[in-house]
Design a protein around this nucleic acid. Sequence first.
DNA 1: CGGGGAATTGAGGCTTCTCAAGCTTAGTGG
DNA 2: CCACTAAGCTTGAGAAGCCTCAATTCCCCG
Lengths: 244, 244
Amino acid sequence: MLTTLLSATDAHALRRLRALAALSEEERRAVSMAAEQSQHLRGSRDLIRAGQRTTGPLLVLAGWLGRVRLFSDGRRQILSFLVPGDVFQEPRTLEPVASSTVTALCDSVICPAPAAEDAGLRDAYAASAAMDEAYLLRQIARLGRMSAYERIHDWLSEMYERLSLAGCAGQDSFTMPLTQETLADALGLTSVHVNRTLQAMRRDGVLEWRGGTVRLKRAAGKPEASSSAAVPARVLPSRTAAAR
Amino acid sequence: MLTTLLSATDAHALRRLRALAALSEEERRAVSMAAEQSQHLRGSRDLIRAGQRTTGPLLVLAGWLGRVRLFSDGRRQILSFLVPGDVFQEPRTLEPVASSTVTALCDSVICPAPAAEDAGLRDAYAASAAMDEAYLLRQIARLGRMSAYERIHDWLSEMYERLSLAGCAGQDSFTMPLTQETLADALGLTSVHVNRTLQAMRRDGVLEWRGGTVRLKRAAGKPEASSSAAVPARVLPSRTAAAR
DNA sequence: CGGGGAATTGAGGCTTCTCAAGCTTAGTGG
DNA sequence: CCACTAAGCTTGAGAAGCCTCAATTCCCCG
């Protein structure tokens, strides 16, 4: 498993950053140099405890990480995901009770994010931060108002889009390294229900998930804030549309 | 109702900003001057459509606003709240499909946020932005892993803390201008269930809510990321603590 | 005093959870 | 080469939380 990671380069991260802003040759070199200080993380084992020593902004080269909040009774919620090309900066913590941790959800590679001394990287980081916020808002809408079926569909769509930016996705498929239980912790469900819902999606022909590869069918248009679309009526209770 | 707002000043906003960073006298004056360009918004009527012309960062002087996402089928999710002293800046939208709106949830007063030309306001805005992100993360954990009872309790605690910063809260109470239905849209519930849960909280002596004023009992210590605390066991299903 | 939005209440149903077992797959060591 | 293990995936049955659909009551306001 780690063997494949050993061949990990800055390719995916660089691809995403360049998709966000035009980088000068100097900046591209800065990214490559930063990538040489890469750090490998074992999946769900090693975790960067956020909330203490901030090592400065990080750049994800490979793998999937997650910002996680743990409850005292064992419940856990994955707040957001970090995939190749994503930049993570611990917010200048006011209260020492930062309370969220960054953990590697599978074997991953990270490196310090090169300093944005020029316009290109600065723009890329700004764009990345803006997208991060958009993902948080989307996660809120997902958890607050979508059914299990919709949540999974919406989340898979999001991850597909994000991985595509870094060139980590195929035509309509991508590699899914997470367990159903991890997915459950992200979507506010139990692993049992995630499992059953996935089966329903397979039956509906919306999804294929064989051997760590997810293939999303008929992703025709992404209504973004509208949800629905390719979702069977059965799971879309017609909430009384309170048009106020 | 609007009468009280007419007497609204910059007092609350100024108080919050000064709690976040030390402001020079010049900066305090800048805030007061900005407050003179205030704009009154009718509750749940007028709404600033975000996603088109961004009028620059805004400062809330009075009232409660919300960032809202609407689904095509009528469902709606309140993503975050803005209370006096909060600063809102539309993220430099990459995709024109911004998809979230800012709505006045009750009669409110806003003004353009004064430019941060000096360190004080700059720090205050930075601190405010950091808190905003923390609130988003908290909202995600709330929606993903808390019961209705816990969600309401946690949300009320958060709003109490936030209002306190601006001096808008009393000893252990504050004015709640929202309807139960609005609350439901924020917490991913229905108004009926919010109502029943509130009754349970009143029965448990955790809460008083008479005539638009909420009083939270025994807020002894706020475990922040731990949840629980003053929550009856009945609503705290002992999830199998998967200590991984 | 009438009107209307908000808060309550009741009954029934469906999504999702809990608890437990089996099953599959991949990795390990004899 | 094959038990043996551990982790993840499936499945079943029953319970619970939350939702839907109406009514009905309450309360503020003109």
